[in-house]
Design a protein around this nucleic acid. Structure first.
Length: 561
RNA sequence: GCGCCUGUAGCUCAGCUGGAUAGAGCAACUGCCUUCUAAGCAGUAGGCCAGAGGUUCGAGUCCUCUCAGGCGCGCCA
């Protein structure tokens, strides 16, 4: 479980360095608590500044009322002589720069090859239960690109947290009880009538895509002998048929996109199980429900929301918000340590009221963490593809998947922070594959695999798990790669705790960007058996890391391309 | 009007929760396949981090204001 970053933090921070600091801090006159000082460790940009660096002396300067360089000297005097360091230097205004010995780094590399994901994935979750709800598209039409981005993010985050030691539940919330589903039913109903030559009015806000007619036609074919049936009954049947059909299609799309869910929570079920009423009663018992102007309100302003929210309208109907209260109460009752919702960024105004619910139920606001996903703009040859929801024209996830592939789509969705806008040029992603970062990373993996294929044929007695290599044979370039590999766990841990899978994507591009030039400059397999073994070990380590990262992103790591 | 997000190279975007001289890909120009895959490699260029103040040893990062763009502010969903 040890690695470059952790070694520094545990062996160094918590034992040697902390001890050193304690001694120094004790001498300080002030009453500040030394434990309150955070010990930061970072990777310097400049290679000359060592492998790891800490600005701790500068942070302590004020507390200790001593010049940073003096503090740095005291610290270094306490910790020098550790076998894992090649050298420790004080630089600039007071940075302490650590350089590890080659032997130490190579031992860590061996650990990596031996332990694989155990080495790579830091256990920051410690078994904590977390639910991630994502996509949750209304079953009223096909998934569009925005849903795809949410799906890619949700799946990657699930993988990430799962690897990081959380117990993750992936949930899709089905809005099967609201007005939108009714509207879908009425739209299909109207089309159905029209198919039978009856001039039936189409609902004003109805769904206008071609798929509406397809569903109507399918319903007609599957129900040839309806006989005489009154419209209400028929509408009910068609609505039921239509949304289930749409939901099945959504499931299929997600499956083909490589995104799976553990649970599907139905809104309708919340009503049937009385969860909605129970949620209202609960809030009422806690004193956050009041009546005014003939409506029932939730006092969300008690928790920082702009205004209080109606949950039962004057006409007795619930608002959109009400079942969501019940839904999130249910999440809480299921006992998660953290609840994550992934929403489209256009719903950001909804966050404060939802967090108010969490607080009203007695939990801290950040018990619910909402990740917002910005819009995706689709370009074709540099020009934006026009989408009009009104006319029912939009680009579906299915179309893009079919055109550029699920792996590319996912990878591109994960090359940005989720809350920043994303532009995807479909021509670029498809035609000019060299511009496409996903291939760059996958190609590195495939190339390494083909080296192994050759090694198996030509190097007698070679085993891929070979860790008996002589690290002294590594040149500077190889050592740079080793260090990059050993930084993966720290990057992984940061990505997990920040809930930002895109950091994995960037890391993988950087690693591939070190491997390809290396590959080009050096033959891995040569006459020199010892060098060959060392280089194969390095390749194996790169392969392990690439595969681990790609798995988290939900992208294939192909054996050959 | 109020609130949230964004503003970094020509374009698309990173920037490790405040660290050292600001990063990548693409686009552009020039080279490299009798070698483990050319989906690759080598080289050249590009910046008032929107602007102005402030916080401190130190700011792209935190605070205030201004400007620009996006989104949200219903007893709609």
């Amino acid at each position: 479980m040890s690695n470059l970053h952790k070694i520094a933090q545990i062996r160094l921070n918590l034992t040697v360095m902390e001890k050193a600091l304690r001694g120094i801090l004790l001498k300080a006159a002030g009453s500040q608590r030394p434990e309150a000082v955070r010990i930061e460790i970072e990777t310097p940009k400049e290679e000359g500044f060592g492998d790891l660096s800490t600005p701790i002396a500068m942070s302590l300067s004020k507390i200790l009322k001593k010049p940073p360089r003096k503090i740095a000297e005291d610290i270094v005097n306490e910790i020098k002589g550790q076998a894992i360091f090649e050298k420790i230097e004080i630089a600039g205004p007071g940075f302490i720069n650590f350089t590890f010995t080659k032997q130490f780094l190579c031992n860590e590399l061996k650990q990596l090859i031996e332990q694989k994901e155990i080495f790579l994935a830091e256990d920051i979750g410690k078994g904590k239960k977390v639910q991630i709800e994502f996509v949750s598209a209304n079953p009223t039409g096909p998934l569009h690109l925005g849903h795809g981005r949410g799906a890619a993010l949700g799946a990657a985050l699930s993988n990430l947290l799962n690897e990081a030691g959380y117990a993750v539940e992936r949930e899709f919330y089905i809005n099967d009880a609201g007005r939108q589903v009714k509207l879908l039913g009425m739209s299909v109903f109207a089309k159905y009538k029209q198919l039978q030559g009856i001039d039936y009015p189409f609902p004003d806000d109805g769904y206008k895509g071609d798929y509406i007619e397809d569903i109507a036609e399918e319903f007609r074919v599957k129900n040839p002998d309806l006989g005489v049936i009154d419209n209400d009954k028929l509408l009910e049947q068609i609505t039921d048929f239509a949304y289930k059909k749409m939901l099945a299609e959504i499931k299929k799309d997600l499956e083909d996109f490589g995104v799976l869910f553990d649970t599907w929570q139905s809104e309708l079920e919340l009503y049937k199980s009385n969860a909605v009423q129970q949620a209202i009663d609960d809030l009422k018992a806690r004193g956050y429900i009041f009546e005014e102007e003939g409506a029932i309100w939730f006092k969300s302003t008690a928790f920082g929301d702009d205004k209080d929210r109606v949950i039962i309208k004057k006409d007795g109907d619930y608002t959109y918000f009400t079942p969501d209260i019940a839904y999130h109460r249910k999440k809480i009752l299921k006992g998660f340590d953290e609840i994550i919702d992934i929403w489209g960024a256009d719903h950001h105004g909804y966050v404060p009221r939802m967090q108010a619910v969490i607080e009203a139920l007695g939990y801290p606001k950040d018990h619910l963490r909402v990740l917002l996903v910005q819009m995706v703009t689709l370009l074709r040859g540099g020009k934006p593809v026009q989408m009009s929801k009104r006319a029912g024209e939009f680009i579906t996830l299915r179309e893009v998947m079919d055109e550029i592939g699920a792996d590319t789509t996912k990878f591109l969705f994960l090359t940005r922070r989720s809350d920043s806008h994303l532009e995807v040029d479909i021509e670029t992603a498809k035609v000019q594959s060299s511009e496409n970062p996903v291939y760059y990373v996958q190609y590195a993996h495939a190339r390494i695999n083909s080296i192994f294929e050759k090694a198996r044929q030509e190097v007698i007695g070679y085993r891929q798990e070979e860790i008996d290599f002589n690290g002294d044979l590594f040149n500077d370039e190889e050592m740079r790669i080793v260090k990059k590999l050993l930084l993966y766990p720290a990057m992984f841990g940061n990505a997990a705790s920040a809930h930002e899978p895109h950091r994995i994507t960037f890391y993988l591009q950087e690693l591939a960007g070190m491997f390809h030039p290396y590959y080009h400059r050096h033959k891995v397999i040569s006459e020199d058996t010892e060098v060959t073994k060392a280089r194969l070990a390095l390749c194996e380590a790169i392969r392990i890391v690439l595969k681990h990262g790609l798995k988290i992103l939900g992208v294939k790591a192909p054996e050959r391309m």
